[in-house]
């Protein structure tokens, strides 16, 4: 029971940090699940995060994986509800209110201000992720190639990401 409570607390808290996308919560996600609670190792977290990018739907469903690692299917359910319910209710309420704020003078200021901060949080998440991932020339090359490929073309990201895994697998057997 204590574990389920911890899961609920951690993911409810993390959900409030996902301003501008799931990656904004990555620094705290790493701190809480790896360093504070020792639920999983940093490489495992990176693996789940990346699998989550491949899965369809919302890109942070890997919170279910972490919940499942800690406490099985109940853990996954608790993690999901904790991660989606508080922000869901907030969005529901603000969504109704926002329509009435259409001409509020501070609205563009909040959008522009939080916009740049959330890009900063995504960058912080990418840096922390990079520290765990970029531990060899091969992985640096893969990250740069996928970046350029997705930046220049409109292909489905799933293809280059799966290819990245296959290339690393091939290199493992060489």
């Amino acid at each position: 029971m204590k574990q389920l409570g911890d899961i609920a607390g951690v993911f409810a808290y993390l959900s409030l940090l996902t301003v501008g996308g799931g990656m904004a919560a990555f620094p705290e996600l790493k701190t809480l699940t790896v360093d504070v609670h020792h639920w999983l190792t940093f490489p495992t977290l990176l693996h789940f995060y990346s699998l989550g990018q491949l899965a369809p739907g919302p890109n942070m469903m890997m919170v279910a994986s972490i919940g499942a690692v800690v406490a099985g299917v109940p853990g996954a359910l608790v993690a999901l509800v904790a991660f989606f319910l508080p922000t869901g209710l907030l969005t529901f309420a603000i969504g109704r209110l926002w329509m009435h704020l259409g001409t509020w003078r501070w609205r563009p200021a909040i959008q522009a201000g939080l916009g740049s901060v959330s890009v900063g949080l995504v960058l912080a998440g990418a840096i922390i992720m990079g520290r765990g991932v970029l531990n060899g020339v091969l992985y640096v090359a893969i990250a740069i190639t996928v970046f350029l490929l997705l930046f220049k073309s409109k292909i489905n990201p799933a293809y280059p990401i799966v290819s990245s895994g296959l290339i690393a697998l091939g290199a493992h057997y060489l």
Binding site: L46, A126, Y139, V146, F147, L149, V162, A168, H172
Partner: peptide, 16 residues
């Protein structure tokens, strides 16, 4: 190795 390759690819996606 496979998952680490995927993670490197996902990092590219995050940057994009």
């Amino acid at each position: 190795a496979f998952l680490h390759g995927i993670a490197a690819g996902a990092l590219g996606l995050v940057l994009v």
